[in-house]
Amino acid sequence: MTLPQFKFLAPTNLDEACALLKKHQGKIKVKAGGTDMIVRLSHRAVKPDYLMTLKKIPGLNEISWDDQGGLVIGALALLREVEVSPIILEHAPMLARAAHATATVQIRNMGTVMGNICNASPSADNIPTLVAMEASIVAFSERGQREISLDDFFLGPGRTALAADELAIAIKVPAPAPKTGVSYQKVSQRSKVDIAAVNIGALVTLDGAGNCARVRISMGAVGPTPLRARQAEEFLAGKPASAANLAEAGRLAAADASPISDVRASKEYRKLMVEVLSQRALAEASGFAAGN
């Protein structure tokens, strides 16, 4: 299919980009890698008058770490860069796993983690781990800069808390507390290279006694936005990550999921997979936390 007509904008700095965004509010779409946006354009799912690329803005592809501030992933950091980044692999290896689980290497060489987030698909591979790790989005506009917690970022499929004049310029991931482990688990219809039918991100921080001090579980593709498994999180708090407790947490997570049946999976399968995958994610995360 051919692309519809639009004006292509390629600002070279953030101020210029924000000015354009404000000027053409409602008639402009933003792209980074374009792997979702170009498809949506050619299918006429979106019909903007202007398409603005961020690709000409220097510095937006940074991946950096500092012990206090944690991890920063710029809006233009490619999925493939995150997948293989030594910084990510050292400090947040599950983000690399999630990036690796996204589409094919050809797509990962074009697409960005930020794009995967801002596309706000409930099944996005990179969201659950970032939610579990309490990541936030740095939003930039002429009005200034603010951070939006990922917990509050998703409003519905394809809808985010970004204001019409705001650009998402970076992902911030706080440095994990000591004795913290993270896991990303996914099932899909095809064994490899596939969109998730269900995915789970989990973070477990253990206390001195080896009990779960803090647990965060994010569930993808089981609701209109990524959901937190709050009952399971609360249940595990203060308890050891025993097989029985994890099994109960899995059941509670499934109770918090509200999946639908669609072409990718049925409601009953998704519920069961939340139970299975959250147990697996919690087991792996608590294992990492304990240093196993």
């Binding site: 094919t104 219809q189 095809r190 064994s191 490899k192 290279v193 596939d194 969109i195 072409v263 990718r264």
Partner: peptide, 16 residues
Amino acid sequence: TLNTTFLDYKLACAED
């Protein structure tokens, strides 16, 4: 037919 793209019509991939 509800799955009319290769996103949802699941052909096995090279990796499969």
